[in-house]
Design a protein around this nucleic acid. Structure first.
Lengths: 337, 337
DNA sequence: TATATTGATGTAACCGATATCATTTATAAG
DNA sequence: CTTATAAATGATATCGGTTACATCAATATA
């Protein structure tokens, strides 16, 4: 590879002049600038970004911690991140944490070893409090999709409480009284918020909250299937299943059908996220649409703003949701008992 | 951040000794080594990898060009890549090309500007022949999932022809004679191979090939839906739809149902990839299972072998497939005409 | 004891760009 | 025609490690 010295030699100028000709053309006379550019072209010079970044101390890399890229919603978020990062000259270092804390810590350390400038995490159970204290330095971090309570950190999120409330209201309006919620892992703030929204709606409608209708899943198709199977086996089964993501809803739909029930006549199922498969489920899934790509781009832009010193406070950006009504939800069946 | 000089000063040795104590401990006396390690610990020294990599000229970054991360199969492949890369101390720079050639070129250039050591591409329509010639240097590249005919390049792939043949045979054995294929974009080698396998099976069974039963899609749910709708509108419609991926198959299933047809009694639908949603389709989808994660890990390992000079020839690794028979395929309906 | 050999450590060049400071050249003012 | 000022360019330190080479001490051999 040709370097700046080759160009300087060919153009008959110093390396400083070459650098200036490329970085601050105004400081260089037209004549030399032309010479330099010609030389650059002739030797096919491309600045060694490794060197540039080493010198500047900025890697222009962003670590992205994602629990699992296999999740369709996350895939969309990542897609949005990618686009935004590329537009601003940054690259993404993708890290599939598999929800493993050791792995998360290991990846977060990339920021401290100058492999990346900052970090974005999706669905964080574990804020990097420990890590920060240990090193003493603050980790430039942005949180997406899930709030971190304990740490003031720029965040982009949905009003999960309001969204869950809206969906629950939708089901209540259809006459459902026994609405089960297939939620996420117990400790997740995201799940906590959605459960809160669910309860808000129940309370407002004067429907009693039943702990046994709350079933923890893990956002996979299988877990939705299992949850639905167990909920339907209850002595007094629910007439509606509100799932915290579409994968679980699609899994639940299969379980419901296997029990010989018809959707939405016998039971309603609702999801969350509006992944592409939602519209192709049978019946098509009623769900909450989230602007997934926008989550990604916003998170990236927030992080870049943070890194480049344009952020004074830690903003919380709230993106809008939309309830998409499809055929998987319908009027509650007539009471039989 | 503390640097190697801080450590040297504290330990009362030269920077060279510190470096050696950490890199080649054998060259340093036990006494100094202990002193150095203590100093390292005390100041919390972490080598600046930016500097190390700049000096060595190796970034330990791998560019991954993926047409779209939103594709579930690719997401699994990426997951496998990630794991393998992490295990070997490499990181992935993820690039969502959206099948845009300019974008691909732009990302590929990252290798030439010392941002990455090598590149992996999935489903390449466009080998980087032009780019390579222009720069004169060879781009360390590995191809996954799709063969590149024109360039000798390490590749990990499926025997797509054999797999498509196997699935077609499966449908023929069920008595289907009019088997449509919802394929990928016309110019893709992957599609070409699968179509070849499809024809192999037809020829072997003495079933005439009908050009009108070949319908190009783009691997999305929507395109599967559209393809199926149009194929069913034919004067002499197919009794089986073999789709080149599961997304299109799931889209096709919906279209089929919308026509009032029953699966698999009236028509069979088969997919390719065995994504997680396949088993949760209604009816569950007969498909070809591919070891997606293994594709990813193999690709990464091939690239690292290439980069580290352990590869003399460009190997083609062929991974096994498995036909997963589920309920979406069944005996052909009795001939009515 | 003198010399060869091995082991441990230090000095400094180096990777490729950027940026400070010094220096030269061109222009403006007196 | 000087001198002051601005513009253009060059020489070089710097980022933080690694490594070739030099140096010096300790041990082995003659």
């Amino acid at each position: 590879m040709s370097n700046i010295r080759d160009v300087a030699q060919l153009a008959g100028v110093s390396v400083a002049t070459v650098s200036r000709a490329l970085q601050q053309p105004d400081l260089v006379s037209l004549k030399t600038r032309t010479k330099v550019l010609a030389a650059v072209k002739q030797v096919g010079y491309k600045p060694n970004l490794m060197a540039v970044r080493f010198r500047s101390g900025k890697t222009h890399h962003l670590v992205v911690l994602v629990p699992t890229v296999a999740n369709v919603f996350f895939a969309r978020v990542i897609s949005g991140m990618q686009q935004a990062a590329h537009d601003k000259g940054y690259s993404l270092l993708l890290c599939n944490t598999l929800a493993d804390e050791t792995m998360e810590q290991s990846y977060a350390r990339m920021v401290h070893t100058s492999q990346a400038d900052g970090l974005i995490q999706l669905r964080a159970h574990n804020p990097f409090a420990q890590l920060e204290m240990k090193t003493g330095s603050v980790l430039p971090m942005v949180n997406a999709c899930e709030v971190l309570d304990r740490i003031a950190c720029p965040t982009v999120l949905l009003d999960n409480r309001a969204a869950a409330c809206a969906m629950t209201e939708h089901l209540l309006e259809l006459g459902h009284k026994r609405i089960a919620m297939i939620k996420g892992p117990a400790r997740s703030p995201l799940t906590r918020d959605r459960v809160a929204g669910y309860r808000d709606a129940l309370d407002a409608a004067g429907v009693a909250f039943d702990e046994s209708l709350l079933y923890p899943g893990d956002f996979t198709l299988q877990s939705g299937h299992q949850a639905a199977t167990e909920l339907l086996a209850l002595a007094n089964p629910p007439t509606a299943l509100f799932c915290e993501n579409d994968e679980m809803a699609i899994g639940a739909i299969q379980a419901v059908k296997q029990q010989g029930l018809k959707l939405p006549q016998d039971i309603s199922v609702a999801g969350f996220d509006d992944i592409s498969f939602a519209a192709f489920a049978d019946p098509p899934l009623t769900t909450i649409a989230q602007p997934a790509e926008e989550f990604g781009s916003t998170a990236v832009n927030l992080l870049i703003d943070l890194l480049e010193g344009r952020l004074t406070k830690a903003p919380k950006v709230i993106l809008p949701f939309e309830l998409i009504q499809r055929a998987s939800t319908g009027p509650a069946p007539a009471v039989s008992d």
